[in-house]
Design a protein around this nucleic acid. Structure first.
Length: 555
RNA sequence: GGGCAUGUGGCCUAGUCAGGAUAGGGCGUUAGCCUCCUAAGCUAAUGGUCGGGGGUUCGAAUCCCUCCAUGCCCGCCA
């Protein structure tokens, strides 16, 4: 209803003024919607903005299409306040299962996210990528797109060669109960120490890389095993964060099936190509890059970029919109990749970059072992949540308390990460991660549980949609914006808008809860309020699901 | 040195792309609210040169220039 109403007003205003843009803005405290069109018309008409606004208000008021909308001017501003019929339709729509789901679309979307190297567990920096990507994928599906989520496994890089070397020579054994990814990280850290102490080991690493590229059976087997051991642990962490990938794409695939060679052949024929023996690079100065873009080393082995181009060429052939979620450290290579694809006549991906997460003591690094793992974070937050549930709901069984604690913990982690806009670099903060008040998922989950509790006690009620109380009206208007928020998230690739939005709805519901009695109201007033509680419950539920957070009915 | 990004009360953050009406929240601090639908809640108080300076505009947190601070990148690593 919100989008439709804004569109209608925009169309009528354009028709009336002949302007291209109706200059609609948020009405703030003054109205539901406002237009600043009077300012831009002032010069052309040589009249003062307030006069023009008053004039337009009068002309719009008599249009039958705008019945039920209060139109008035305040100085130069043209204001619109939506009426009872609008509120009624919004609440009715918000109660339907699946509210917020947009019209089915046929553009195929791929989203690549996380894609952390399989040389250790996911840490709190990686999961910013994960949670942004997963929330985006959920939003795309909500917006009606067929969407496939991919994890690109760098399974033949130097890091993996280091892990393989470590596994074969350092004699480190996996501890009982140790997750594969944590075990691989220990090997990786130790191997790097060994290399630092004895640089001659690099020769062995290089040999491994040549052998894997040639497709040597034994080496391939060793790489595969090391990667699988790690990925198995990463998958467990992803599952615990409510994150799902539809496909794990191995970069070695593009070498094995010949795609990379075909792409390199194409690139070698381009004007920008520079070939020196087995060495191949691209001169991207025409695209504004100073350094050459290396694709093959002097020994003829390919670098990551070559495989990445092949991967993206494959994606362009199979999807209409390709989205990559990448850390800020990939900005340069992302831009080089895009420039190269453009030169090849391919469509570059849409890249959503997010800035770094660091620790108070400095940057995180898998190699040096200085990071807070996602598993550790989940464990700590779950323990803290369990403590809280036990305090609040001692009557529940340990199993029930644990189930709630898990849902609260995953929600708290996901929300804490997704609420910050991607372009801000952040410092990981335990106090904030363990805070379950106000601007947090538990706060929203709690509002949802409250709504459920009221409805459970209410029994049957009639459909009545009449609202006069300011708390009712404010809540209804917030609920009505949900579909518009989904649209913004997928068009601007800004998942944090969902977090901001859901917090607004929860805030308004909690105020409503405090000041407007529902079960104690009588007759049609009670029915109308119960309908609004149900609409809020459903909106919170749908929005929480889009954020990958459980909508608990009791907590 | 060059490139990209960020800078909003003691701390965290929305708003910046598509400029508009007194810059929204939260944490903290202070003072209230559970014989009343779950207090993971509600209300109020406190606290701001929107990094500094210049410019464009009827109007700038938002656009342009410049300076400062911070993060990231500038590998035949990924």
């Amino acid at each position: 209803m919100f989008v439709e109403t804004v569109d209608l007003i925009g169309r009528l205003l354009k028709g009336l003024t002949g302007e291209e843009d109706p200059l609609l803005v948020d009405g703030g405290d003054h109205a539901d919607l406002a237009s600043t069109i009077a300012f831009s018309l002032a010069k052309k008409q040589k009249r003062s903005p307030p006069l023009i606004a008053a004039d337009l208000a009068e002309k719009l008021r008599i249009l039958p299409e705008l019945d039920g909308i209060t139109i008035f001017s305040t100085g130069p501003y043209l204001n619109f306040t939506f009426g009872g019929e609008y509120l009624a339709q919004c609440v009715a729509a918000a109660r339907k299962p699946g509210y917020g789901t947009l019209l089915k679309k046929y553009e195929r979307v791929s989203i690549e996210h996380t894609s952390a190297n399989p040389n250790g567990p996911l840490h709190v920096g990686h999961i910013r990528n994960t949670i942004i990507g997963d929330t985006l994928a959920r939003a795309f599906r909500k917006a009606g797109y067929p969407c496939e989520v991919q994890y690109y496994i760098n399974d033949m890089g130097r890091q993996i060669a280091i892990v393989v070397w470590g596994l074969e020579t350092l004699g480190i054994t996996r501890l009982p109960g140790e997750k594969g990814d944590h075990f691989i990280a220990r090997v990786y850290v130790r191997a790097n120490h060994a290399i630092r102490d004895d640089e001659s080991i690099n020769g062995a690493i290089e040999r491994l890389m040549q052998e894997i590229e040639r497709g040597d059976r034994d080496v391939d087997q060793a790489f595969r095993q090391a990667v699988n051991t790690c990925v198995e642990g990463i998958k467990e962490t992803l599952f615990n964060l409510h994150v799902h990938h539809d496909r794990f794409v191995r970069e070695s695939t593009f070498v094995r099936i010949g795609d990379m060679q075909r792409v390199l052949d194409r690139l070698a024929r381009m004007d920008e190509a520079e070939v020196e023996g087995k060495f191949l690079s691209l001169d991207l100065t025409s695209s504004g890059f100073e350094k050459k873009y290396v694709l093959k080393r002097a020994d003829g082995t390919s670098v990551y970029a070559a495989r990445d181009i092949a991967y993206h060429v494959w994606k362009t052939a199979n999807y209409d919109r390709n989205i990559d979620v990448l850390g800020a450290d990939h900005k340069l290579i992302g831009a080089q990749l895009s420039a190269t694809l453009r030169l090849m006549g391919e469509v570059p991906p849409e890249i959503l970059h997010f800035e770094f997460v660091s620790l108070p003591e400095g940057a995180m690094s898998t190699r040096s072992g200085t990071f807070v793992s996602a598993d550790e974070l989940i464990e700590e937050v779950t323990a803290r949540a369990l403590e809280e549930v036990t305090k609040r709901r001692p009557e529940l069984s340990p199993g029930e308390r644990m189930a709630i604690a898990r849902s609260v913990a995953v929600g708290a982690i996901r929300f804490d990460i997704v609420r910050v806009s991607p372009e801000k670099s952040t410092v990981f903060n335990w106090k904030q991660a363990l805070d379950f008040e106000r601007q947090s998922a538990p706060y929203v989950q709690y509002a949802h549980a409250r709504a459920c509790s009221i409805l459970a006690k209410a029994g049957d009620f009639e459909e009545v949609y009449e609202y006069n109380d300011p708390h009712e009206i404010a809540l209804t208007k917030a609920i009505a914006r949900f579909p518009a928020v989904i649209t913004s998230v997928v068009t601007d690739l800004r998942p944090h808008l969902l977090a901001t939005y859901i917090r607004d709805v929860a805030d308004l519901f909690n105020s409503f809860y405090r000041f407007v009695p529902v079960l104690k109201a009588e007759g049609s007033l009670r029915d109308a309020r119960l309908c609004l509680v149900d609409a809020t419950r459903n909106t919170l539920r749908e929005a929480l699901q889009t954020l990958g957070i459980d909508a608990l009915e009791s907590m």
